[in-house]
């Protein structure tokens, strides 16, 4: 394992009861790389992301993150999660806190920063995702979906994570709001952040991903450069799925 590998997943399995959801996933992600995962609904993409930040405990296999195996019992789960940002499909902002308080919470409670320092960092993070001062003191319900998701991204990046996970970050958004979120994500990818993005936005994958992974039935079926996997998939399953998506997005 080279030291440029930030994440290394080996033969990962997960069962929900008898339901075999992850069936031996192998994936390595380099520092600075952005990987897009594409695949049909129910194939286990969310479960994979949740295993990576230990929201879900895998049943078999290994995950090595930041040169440390995190699938052993001894690991400090909180320290791992602190280093991994997670952006959810439904934003999951804390509804009782304002935009800026959402970003500050982790800085204060997890990093133990004093309020002033937390506020400065939060302001910077919000500005970097295009959330300007007049929105800082609004509650999530007073923001548009696109703004909420950008606040959620700010909440994740303010913690200075080594890895960002996105689970279908735009699929709960109205079409006209998708662009503003993708733009922020593109910027993050271009800044050289390490990220894994589950999405069906193949335009984003083509523009911002270093690698695309096609995931089906709990396994990685195919991976390669975005052009190769999206425009010229080798396997029949990937071809069929990507064809239906391309139809949907009228790309090409």
């Amino acid at each position: 394992m080279g030291s440029d590998k930030l994440l290394f997943i080996e033969d990962l399995h997960k069962y929900y009861g008898k339901h075999h959801v992850l069936k031996g996933v192998n994936l390595a992600v380099n520092e600075g790389e952005s990987v897009v995962i594409i695949g049909p609904s129910g194939s286990g993409k969310s479960t994979l992301l949740r295993c990576i930040n230990l929201l879900v405990k895998p049943d078999k296999g290994r995950i090595v993150f930041d040169n440390e195996e995190i699938t052993t019992g001894k690991i400090d789960v909180r320290r791992v999660r602190e280093k991994i940002g997670f952006v959810f499909q439904h934003f999951n902002l804390f509804l009782h806190l304002t935009a800026i308080e959402n970003v500050m919470l982790g800085l204060i409670k997890v990093k133990n920063y004093p309020r002033e320092k937390a506020r400065r960092i939060a302001e910077e993070a919000l500005l970097s995702v295009g959330i300007t001062e007049e929105l800082w003191n609004k509650y999530p319900a007073q923001l548009s979906g696109g703004q909420q998701q950008r606040v959620a991204i700010a909440r994740a990046i303010a913690m200075e994570p080594k890895l960002l996970l996105f689970d279908e970050p735009t699929s709960a958004l109205d079409p006209e709001l998708i662009g503003e979120v993708l733009k922020v994500m593109e910027k993050l990818a271009n800044e050289g952040r390490t990220m894994i993005v589950v999405t069906h936005e193949i335009g984003f994958a083509l523009k911002a991903a270093d690698r695309v992974v096609f995931f089906d039935d709990g396994k990685i079926i195919e991976e390669g450069s975005p052009e190769q996997v999206i425009l010229n998939p080798k396997t029949e399953r990937a071809r069929r799925f990507l064809f239906s998506i391309r139809e949907l997005y009228r790309l090409e």
Partner: peptide, 19 residues
């Protein structure tokens, strides 16, 4: 969902409940 979000930024279970 709120619990997931709270844990994902590294809060302890206790902090997730109390904050």
């Amino acid at each position: 969902r709120q619990m997931e979000a709270a844990l994902s930024i590294g809060l302890s279970k206790w902090s997730a409940y109390t904050s």
